[in-house]
Design a protein around this nucleic acid. Sequence first.
DNA 1: AGTATGTGTAAGTATTTACTTACGCAAGTT
DNA 2: AACTTGCGTAAGTAAATACTTACACATACT
Lengths: 119, 119
Amino acid sequence: MAYEARRDVFQAIADPTRREIIGLVVKEPQNLNALAGNFNMSRPAISQHVKILTECGLIIIKQKGRERYCEAKLDQLNEVSAWIEQYKQFWEQKLDALESYLTKIQQQQKPTKNARRKK
Amino acid sequence: MAYEARRDVFQAIADPTRREIIGLVVKEPQNLNALAGNFNMSRPAISQHVKILTECGLIIIKQKGRERYCEAKLDQLNEVSAWIEQYKQFWEQKLDALESYLTKIQQQQKPTKNARRKK
DNA sequence: AGTATGTGTAAGTATTTACTTACGCAAGTT
DNA sequence: AACTTGCGTAAGTAAATACTTACACATACT
């Protein structure tokens, strides 16, 4: 039951190996053996990761003779980008404007001096 | 062994429930029961998701009496944002400049007219 | 003090993940 | 035609995930 129900971009990029595959393929399209050469795992393992990446559209395969070149096609990253972007403002504003406010609140929560919980 | 070795932001946002939690908490900080009310799953399940989110810093907990308010603190999303951003140019340029080139290549790969594979 | 409320966490479970090795097949080479 | 190369995929496995129910415990309320 390995590698079945997976077509989600968020899931796809959750795995560090897959992120690395993307990084390599963006730099230079390459066939599966070449790709697998960069990792400390078996060729089939990489093949399975690539499958997932193609299933969610982040990689496309160009068959050339018996070789299959993997190319990056990162448009789907837009989904993630958009999700992040909607919060960007939030966290950037938090950083300066609300910083002092938050600190204040936090101080109100400090336990009374020398107070002890009974064990 | 539920929910152990997890502190990675990419992993954290890979789960749709956790993404939804973030969405809710950004709009309005709320305690765990209120939060859990939005989902079709048990309160402990949400508690565990929140734990993961706090562990990678996307949510902070403000204890108020017996309640624990969850607030979003999305700075860590920067890690994801940065990763995506480095590729943004790539996929945006691909969209126009390379589009025609890719189409051309693709056509070169079309099997010869009426060519058939033996079965 | 006794009860209700808000919550963390342990233990159990089904499913999914991320690998592995073994095998099979098509495309090129000799 | 036989051999090599490049690759997909099946089957097996250990670990991680995402839940659940049961329980413990502190804070508040009466």
